[in-house]
């Protein structure tokens, strides 16, 4: 059985956005802190540390999960995708990112990385969602700036384009 003492720091290896990465973490280190302060991938944000705001949402093995309520040590060996992994460069936004830009789906952008990660899984599984389904998926995120309107519009547009409507 794999055991780590509370004051030990051990190497945690993940594939972060397709790249093998390794860093030290003690058992209690939140994945969000590990990504941000150990691997210095600051794109993932922290807004509440109790699972509600959704700012910290990342994809773990393809699923949108709160990085504030899972510990780095738990994801050793797993595939993590964060906002940094979506576009090849800021000049080549993905369709989803471009739609967010077009529809003013962000203002301060603090909630945005988490929302983009949720959308990534959601749109892969729901190619033609209804507006109600989109809004229901978004209840897992708080945005204080936009009133959600632009976000909903952006997702609708990407879905429509994807499903060839």
């Amino acid at each position: 059985m794999f055991e780590v003492a509370c004051d030990a720091s051990i190497p945690v290896r993940v594939t972060l956005n397709g790249v093998a990465r390794e860093g030290l973490a003690s058992p209690r280190m939140q994945l969000a802190d590990f990504l941000r302060h150990v691997l210095r991938a600051y794109g993932t944000h922290v807004g509440c540390e109790h699972g509600i705001c959704g700012a910290c949402t990342v994809l773990i093995d393809g699923r949108a999960v709160r990085a504030c309520m899972i510990f780095a040590i738990q994801v050793d060996g797993m595939d993590i995708r964060t906002v940094e992994g979506l576009a090849a460069s800021p000049d080549e936004l993905t369709a989803l990112q471009a739609a967010f830009k077009k529809h003013h789906a962000l203002q301060c952008g603090f909630c945005t990385p988490g929302i983009l990660m949720s959308c990534t899984q959601f749109l892969a599984e729901h190619p033609a969602p209804t507006e109600a389904e989109i809004r229901e998926m978004l209840t897992g995120h708080l945005c204080r700036c936009t009133g959600y309107k632009g976000i909903v519009e952006a997702i609708k547009e990407v879905a429509a384009a994807k499903s060839g409507a």
């Binding site: 055991e3 509370c6 058992p27 802190d33 540390e49």
Partner: peptide, 13 residues
């Protein structure tokens, strides 16, 4: 808002 220290065990069965 960080947890107090804990040790970690990962049973496989």
């Amino acid at each position: 808002m960080k947890p107090a220290p804990f040790a970690y065990v990962r049973p496989l069965s």
